[in-house]
Simulated scan of single mutants.
Amino acid sequence: MGRFLAIVILVSALAAGAAMYYFQVYGFYTEVEPNGTDDVVLIETATGEPAAIAYGDFRAIDADSSPIRYRACFTTTQDLAELSATFTAYEDAAPRVAPGWFDCFDAEEIGDALADGSALAFLGQRNLEYGIDRVVAVMEDGRGFVWHEVNDCGEKAYDGSPVDDSCPPRGF
């Protein structure tokens, strides 16, 4: 009887582990259908308003289970000098790892490019959801990437610190 129970527990644990792996890597993600006009938007420095940039080859995934699961890849013909002169930079951008099957998004490569200056990060949207910013990075070769990052207000709200006046009201 003991051997039978051990086998049942082991099989149950393996099944639960396989299910958790599947749901984390595949189950919650869906492909995002591009609209072809404003899938890639940056905030203009002069006006503070969003503006779409020229892009192609857009691919994106998202999941309802978390606001930071969004990842996208695209190409653009606009160069970094033109983008940095027009759009708001995003300081300390840190791309999040995408599932391995979404192979156009390599967080390590993007992070290295941001660190060595061969890519620049821009604000795509502040407080897309409370405490979550959309970040757009563009490399010198025209490849671009989009992801969501927790901003200062989000970090304060999620770790229980007092939220100051620089943050928008919750539920804005």
Rank of each mutant, 00 (worst) to 15 (best):
A93H: 06
C104S: 03
F105Q: 05
F102P: 11
F87D: 05
V97C: 09
F87R: 00
D106Q: 07
D79L: 06
A89M: 08
Y90K: 13
A98H: 07
A98D: 03
V97H: 14
R96M: 13
F87W: 04
D106H: 12
A85E: 12
T88S: 15
P99H: 03
V97N: 13
F102I: 06
G100C: 00
P99D: 03
F105H: 09
D79C: 06
D106Y: 09
T86K: 10
A93C: 04
A85R: 08
F105K: 02
A89D: 13
T86Q: 12
A89P: 08
Y90M: 09
F87A: 02
T88C: 09
A89W: 01
W101D: 07
R96H: 13
E108R: 13
F105V: 07
E91P: 07
E108Y: 11
F87S: 01
D79F: 01
T86N: 13
A98Q: 06
E82T: 14
A94V: 14
E82C: 05
S84M: 08
I110H: 01
D103M: 11
L83C: 00
L80C: 04
E91W: 06
A98M: 08
S84V: 06
A98S: 08
T88V: 12
S84W: 02
L83H: 05
E82M: 11
T86H: 07
E91I: 07
A94D: 15
S84Y: 00
R96Y: 12
I110M: 09
A89V: 05
C104E: 07
R96G: 15
S84A: 12
E82F: 08
P99N: 06
A85N: 12
P99R: 01
A89R: 04
P95M: 04
E109Y: 04
A94R: 15
W101C: 08
D106I: 08
G100F: 05
A85K: 07
Y90W: 12
C104A: 07
A85H: 08
E108G: 10
E91G: 11
I110D: 01
E91D: 09
A98I: 04
F102G: 04
R96K: 14
A81S: 13
F102R: 03
D103Y: 13
A89C: 03
C104I: 01
W101A: 06
D92N: 15
I110Y: 01
D92H: 11
D92P: 03
E82R: 12
R96C: 09
A107W: 06
A94F: 15
E109S: 13
Y90G: 03
Y90S: 14
D79M: 01
A81Y: 05
F102H: 03
E91T: 11
A94H: 14
D106T: 06
C104R: 00
G100T: 10
D92W: 09
L83E: 00
R96T: 15
T86C: 01
P95K: 04
E82A: 15
D103N: 14
T88Q: 14
A94W: 13
D79S: 07
F105S: 05
A107E: 06
L83N: 00
F102Q: 09
F105N: 04
D79K: 02
F87C: 01
G100N: 12
F102V: 04
T86P: 10
